[in-house]
């Protein structure tokens, strides 16, 4: 598996540099600080770009891969920037039984990304959730804050078409 997060923006790169230049004053160079440092970095930057992980590895004087190991192990860490819209496919018991994986596959195919990734244009990021509490509507996908029930692959297409039209309108009016 290779990670291809969307290219880092200038603004994000600035945040990375700022974080790395101040890291000294908040943390000591102990390996046990790795997780708190990563958490802080993600708080500041929004995710953990390669540049940040490499800088942290250098600061702690540990191999890059050790930082990568920890980041990929814990769900709380993101390798990809948040998209403009977040797509959360429910994989709770009811949604799983109701075809959650089929829905997940539909999102993956349509967006051209895998779980826990972000589209190159940064419009969408995709991930799973474990039961959002409305199992009667299974299978469920939460888009931003909104719960969408009884999702089918065609609904996925429909929802994405809606966003496309919205974007077109926006670009025409601007």
């Amino acid at each position: 598996m290779t990670d291809f997060p969307p290219e880092i923006t200038k603004e994000e790169m600035g945040k990375v540099s700022l974080f790395l230049s101040n890291i000294n004053s908040t943390f000591s160079k102990e390996r046990s600080n790795l997780i708190p440092i990563l958490q802080e970095a993600q708080n500041r930057i929004g995710y953990l770009p390669h540049e940040a992980m490499l800088g942290i590895a250098e600061f702690l004087d540990i191999p890059d891969i050790d930082v990568y190991s920890v980041v990929t192990f814990y769900n709380q860490f993101r390798l990809n920037p948040p998209g403009k819209h977040s797509i959360r496919v429910c994989m709770g018991t009811a949604c799983h039984v109701g075809g959650g994986t089929v829905i997940m596959d539909a999102w993956k195919r349509r967006l051209g990304i895998d779980k826990r990734q972000t589209t190159p244009d940064r419009e969408f990021d995709l991930d799973t959730v474990a039961c959002v509490g409305c199992c009667a509507m299974a299978p469920v996908t939460v888009i931003d804050e909104e719960v969408q029930g009884k999702i089918s692959p065609t609904r996925v297409d429909g929802i994405l078409l809606g966003y496309q039209i919205e974007r077109k309108k926006e670009s025409q009016s601007s």
């Binding site: 598996m1 990670d3 191999p63 890059d64 891969i65 190991s69 192990f73």
Partner: peptide, 22 residues
Amino acid sequence: GIGAIGFAYRGFDRMVTSFAGQ
């Protein structure tokens, strides 16, 4: 003292790889 490879991901996805899966 090289540290080129390590473990990444977890569960069934767990694998030995290098930084960023390069």
